[in-house]
């Protein structure tokens, strides 16, 4: 029995199953200016890979996400960020986004999340290792995040 059809079938199966990362972000209750939240991936040595999603469209304030801005400087275009930017999450509300994760699940990556509110807190040290068989992570009560469910689709 020829193995070639099996190999081709397997290859097509792999090609169709492009991995994805889904972030379901829920914010705490609050008032005033809504916080900006950004998620990106970098290598374990700190090398910037790419932005997963920016929960804001106010480009003039992107620079205030200082950790993310410094990491992506010279590595990612503004157009690339615009493509993954969306509405700011309202207080006590949630948003769910799904992004391609091709090349991000190799086991040497780290998920970074930064949150900042105008004249409020600035949370920038959150790092979550991404292993090859990573199934995601559940973040609870961190800064302005009530919960963030990060899951992987394969």
């Amino acid at each position: 029995m020829s193995r070639i059809p099996l190999l081709l079938a397997a290859a097509s199966l792999i090609a169709a199953a492009e991995p994805t990362i889904t972030i379901d972000l829920a914010l705490k209750a609050g008032s005033g200016d809504k916080p900006m939240v950004v998620a990106w991936v970098e290598r374990t040595d700190g090398t910037f890979v790419r932005t997963l999603h920016m929960f804001s469209r106010d480009r003039k304030y992107f620079k205030d996400m200082t950790t993310w801005s410094a990491a992506r400087a010279g590595q990612e275009t503004d157009a690339a960020v615009d493509a993954v930017s969306g509405a700011t999450v309202s207080w006590a509300s949630h948003q769910k986004i799904t992004v391609p994760a091709t090349g991000l699940l190799g086991g040497d990556m780290v998920l970074r999340i930064e949150q900042r509110k105008d004249k409020g807190g600035h949370y920038k040290k959150d790092k979550y290792p991404i292993a090859a068989d990573w199934r995601g992570v559940l973040i609870s009560d961190r800064g302005y995040i009530a919960s963030a469910t990060v899951s992987v689709g394969r």
Partner: peptide, 8 residues
């Protein structure tokens, strides 16, 4: 292939 599951 690992389906998207409830995260740990």
């Amino acid at each position: 292939p690992v389906a998207a599951a409830v995260p740990p």
